[in-house]
Write a protein that binds this DNA or RNA. Sequence first.
DNA 1: GGATGGACTTGACAAGATGTAC
DNA 2: GTACATCTTGTCAAGTCCATCC
Length: 554
Amino acid sequence: VRKIRVLMTRTELLWEEGKSSDTQKWSSLEHKGPYFPPEYEPLPDNICFYYDGQPMKLSPATEEIVTFYAKMLDHEYTSKEVFQCNFFSDWKEEMTKEERKLIKMLSKCDFSQIHKYFVEKSEERKNMTKEEKQVLKEEASRLMEEYGFCLLDGHREKIGNFKLEPPGLFRGRGEHPKMGKLKKRIQPEDVTINCSQDSKIPAPPAGHRWKRVQHDNTVTWLASWLENIHGRPKYIMLNPSSKLKGEKDWQKYETARRLKMKVDSIRKQYRRDWTSREMKSRQRGVAIYFIDKLALRAGNEKDDESADTVGCCSLRVEHITLHRRLDGQEHVVEFDFLGKDSIRYYNKVPVEKQVFKNLKLFIKHKDPEDDLFDRITTVKLNKTLNECMPGLTAKVFRTFNASTTLQDQLNKLTTGEKILSYNRANRAVAILCNHQRAAPKTFEKSMQLLQEKIQKKKEQIEEAKKELKEAKKAHKDKAVQRLSEQLKKLQLQETDREENKVIALGTSKLNYLDPRISVAWCKKHQVPVEKIYNKTQRDKFAWAIDMTDENFQF
DNA sequence: GGATGGACTTGACAAGATGTAC
DNA sequence: GTACATCTTGTCAAGTCCATCC
């Protein structure tokens, strides 16, 4: 190596230095390793599994798997055939020979007693006394103290997920072909430890050893293992409040801000591509247009071992409907597909005539299940984007458009009701990014309560007005005014809650909105930053809170 | 240029913690 | 003080994108 270095030119050395400073993530790293979930505790003797009506004592390993299923009995998905099949076949593999001989059909298995046992246990936990709860809390914070932090370049940093994932049944989102499969218990022998050479190497649990101990400072993780469902790696990494993550986050927003300077020329380019002689350029032009205008995800190819979901590049003909005219608008594209986490994307969008023409061309002679964009991939698309601007990829558009929208909406919407204004702006972004949530369980009830309040307020106003007529007193007039303002506020709250019913604000706030926009807005309008960001969010965005003044522009 | 593996970000959801009305 | 609603936090699945190999 030394010989080679001597032969290298100065430029080459500098280049290598630059590269290494970019890829090196730390110079020292010390930690205690992951925390392992407690061992399985066998069921008490009076709690039994029944097969074909007969009680049956299972081996501990088999029994543990049964408890996973029994705990889930309330969930709708245990009634799904895929779930049941996957579970039963994985369960059988872990049975003893004797058990396998006896247990032939899931439908003859009765887990109800075990289910009841766990329901009661969780009730008990809920009904614990304050003191008992306090003991648990202290235990948790002791654990956090011991395993929850690492030493990175001499700084004590919080770890994101220091507890290993306990065994259980894989659920997955949407119609996942692997739902119900057994997620196995992780053993120390499965775990790779990453730390610095001269640090105190974490001790494996007694009687065990690690799979490997490595000292790779080009990666940020502290420990990793392969999960058995897809055979993909999982990691223990730092908390978002850490310097390492914070700097990366800041970089992300800086890249998005660079796009701001470039976006006009990129838009011009993809419009030119719409009329290109080459099919692949036209497809690329339309795809980038969707990514830009609709904030669609890139849409990498997926295997059939996971739920059938798509993003931009993986859209199929069946996911769009073209309407020459619809509801008084021209050239409307109707999107209907399942995106990330099997969340439905449904949108009717008027597009430019040339885009419409192109889409017609793309779907010509194709079957519904054919790819809409058959000449491009996310890799090719990102390559093009990277040539337009270093560091530019499809997902930067989401960050860019989200942050730009927030800034615009804040400028447009900010009124006396500051927090409501902020939430509205936040909601505009969440809608753009299609961040949905299940309607809160108590939604109807709390809505009704609010409506009752509004009704009451209206009656109060009527009452006050009547009194006003009877005795023309100046202070009564003021009272009506005050009540009317209160009514207005309540009505605003009503629309707000209604519009927020199935919209999740958290994801965009945490991942897409440049926190400096929010911090600057707070300063400009004298809103305490605590009203916008809770403790965790303030920790994550400490860098932004620190550096931003009210004049910041995204 | 496609396939694969690896590292990292983004995402919905539910349990637990906290706040609020009575 | 209790019951309920809402917010916070942890969990872990599912994306993106890059490097490497052939």
